[in-house]
Design a protein around this nucleic acid. Structure first.
Length: 582
DNA sequence: GCCGTTTTCGGCCCGACTGTTTTCAGTCG
């Protein structure tokens, strides 16, 4: 799938057009198309072959031609021409916070600057002051921006940001008088990583809230303070924006600050078409400027003729159209989850005992828990031999639980070279549930890894493919794998794909999980991959990811009752080997 | 360059904050 590559091409064109000072709307058109394609679930090559490129919103005659040219010839003449005029390096300059397209272009034209190091040099040399409207404060701003850029390790994983946000919300709620406080932005949409943290407060008087905010012990630097909006940097270099609005604008502000930008733009366009205007203070009539909604988010959506859209869906990926037709999905919720399908104990590399993790799952109100310790080929994780697995089963059978709870005896097998597994294939039917995943040979070629996984799945012995792409967010790229091919194989043997809910992994990612369901009709299995009882709580990140993938309860294996789950396993196994029955 | 529940032409989301300035352009989200 080359969607990202094509999105990047169009995005570069958009940026260069912006630098060049081209018609703003032309530039926006390229940026819109890029964003649509980045998140488009179907390979753009397929659409191109079928002559349906213009099915993508934002792709018209001109952009379709450029995509076609690129797919045919691996180059884009228009981009080449632009690069002749504007050096590509200028895009680097724009990454410095505080440097936008206008300044970047001026720096290049007036001072010949086209790299961050050259920028830093000329600021320190005082050359910047020769330019109009740039003084001492601007110099400081730019130096600070460069420093931020150097220190920034990129976006912050959801699993890191969420607990921090929850702590700060609790703190502010206790220290000052406010009516409501809510995390907004990409964190409320549960994106896998976030750029900064957006907090929204409703209060009659903003001043004490602002004061409490900028004097929190976490504050390392105050980047801006206004009467209704302030920005700080924590000592862990997390940027936090706080906005205070009056209570009667709460809903409008909540909607506005949750985004995404694309979703908001879509809503405001919808408003204009209905002779209304939407901003963070409310929804207004264009005729008499009368306020039509604003106290609640539901009111905003309703007045626009839409169903309320859950934050996880607000990416302008079809949710606005679905909300218009009142056919948004009934998204899976944490309370639908009846069990965890992937956990480890001290038998392999987990921290807690079988009994401890099982009792923790029981306390969470689950109906079942799958213990899935590593198998022998994963030596570093103390993988179990066949004999030790049998001993583990004895221990498991000796434990007693309440009548509504059961532990399933599973395994996380290793997909070895050529797609073999740790034990002879027939032995796997002994386990209640078989997960398998790749833990070695991560740098194999795309063809090798794809075939390896396809062979393992084709054995019919794997119920769930664990962490299908092997990525560690911000640390390790997914391995090269043709995920569409893997999904097709999974469908042919009725296997499910895991959504590994560990916030380090979140694998499959949202867009792939949506494809797995939409295009291949696959079931998804949420597994925390917990190596301690505490990590069982990461299920909420996986549920959020499933919601971002538009999944309904019936798409998620964990929503099944124990009976339904066992039936699914038996049916799946019988389909692949009619002789096997339990 | 895209697009249509007023339009195939004429629109295209909206506001806060900053800096250097006397009224606003640039940046950001």
């Amino acid at each position: 799938m080359r969607n990202s590559e094509i999105a990047q091409l169009l995005g570069t064109i958009a940026s260069l057009l912006e630098l060049k000072g081209e018609n703003r709307f032309k530039q926006i058109a390229y940026a819109d198309a890029a964003r649509q394609i980045e998140n488009w679930p179907i390979p753009v090559e397929d659409l191109w072959k079928d002559g349906r490129l213009r099915k993508i919103p934002g792709v018209g005659e001109g952009i379709a031609k450029k995509i076609a040219e690129y797919l045919e010839t691996e180059r884009c003449g228009f981009l080449e021409e632009l690069k002749e005029e504007i050096p590509l390096e200028l895009l680097e300059l724009e990454k410095v916070p505080g440097v936008g397209p206008k300044l970047a272009l001026m720096l290049y034209q007036e001072l010949g600057i086209c790299s961050i190091s050259a920028l830093e040099e000329s600021v320190r040399g005082g050359q910047l002051r020769s330019l109009p409207r740039l003084g001492q404060k601007s110099e400081q701003n730019i130096l600070r921006g460069i420093e931020t850029l150097y220190k920034q390790s990129g976006r912050i994983p959801l699993g890191v940001a969420m607990p921090v946000a929850e702590g700060i919300v609790a703190q502010l709620r206790n220290t000052c008088a406010l009516q409501e406080i809510q995390v907004c932005g990409s964190l409320r949409r549960w994106k896998e990583t976030i750029g900064d943290l957006d907090l929204l407060v409703s209060a009659m008087d903003a001043e004490p809230v602002m004061k409490a905010f900028i004097t929190m012990p976490e504050v390392a630097q105050i980047l801006g303070v206004g009467p209704t909006k302030s920005t700080i940097l924590t000592s862990s270099r997390l940027q936090i924006d706080l906005r205070v609005v009056p209570p009667d604008s709460w809903g409008a502000a909540l909607q506005y600050f949750t985004g995404s930008q694309a979703h908001n733009v879509h809503l405001r366009e919808l408003a204009i078409r209905q002779r209304m205007k939407l901003n963070e203070y409310g929804l207004f009539s264009m005729e008499d400027n009368q306020k039509l909604a604003g106290e609640t988010e539901e009111g905003i959506y309703q007045t626009l003729g839409l169903e309320w859209v859950p934050p996880e869906l607000r990416e302008d990926q079809g949710e606005v159209e679905a909300a218009q037709k009142k056919c948004l999905p009934r998204l899976v919720e944490l309370k639908d989850i009846r069990g965890d399908l992937h956990t480890h104990t001290e038998w392999s590399d987990g921290r807690d005992s079988l009994a401890e993790i099982a009792r923790a799952a029981e306390r969470m109100g689950y109906q079942y828990l799958v213990i899935s310790d590593h198998a022998q080929a994963l030596g570093v994780a103390n993988g179990l031999t066949w004999e030790r697995f049998l001993q583990q089963r004895s221990e498991l059978r000796s434990l007693e639980f309440g009548s509504g709870f059961q532990v399933l005896w599973g395994v996380e097998a290793n997909i070895l070279n050529e797609g073999r597994l740790d034990f002879p294939l027939d032995s796997f039917v002994t386990f209640d549930l078989v997960l398998a995943g790749i833990h070695s040979g991560l740098s194999q070629t795309r063809i090798q890894i794809t075939q390896r996984v396809a062979r393992a799945l084709s054995s019919g012995r794997v119920d769930i493919l664990a962490h299908p792409t092997g990525r560690l967010i911000g640390k390790r790229n997914p391995f090269e794998i043709e995920i569409g091919e893997v999904m097709a194989t999974a469908r042919s043997v009725g296997a499910a794909l895991e959504i590994n809910t560990s916030p380090e992994r979140l694998d499959l990612k949202d867009i792939d999980a949506r494809t797995a369901r939409d295009k291949f009709g696959l079931k998804l299995a949420l597994g925390t991959d917990a190596h301690s009882t505490k990590s069982l709580e990461t299920m909420r990140y996986g549920v959020a990811l499933a919601r971002r993938a538009w999944l309904e309860p019936r798409d998620v294996l964990n929503t099944f009752t124990l009976r339904e789950l066992c039936d699914w396993i038996v049916r799946r196994r019988a389909q692949n080997n009619p002789l096997i029955s339990r």
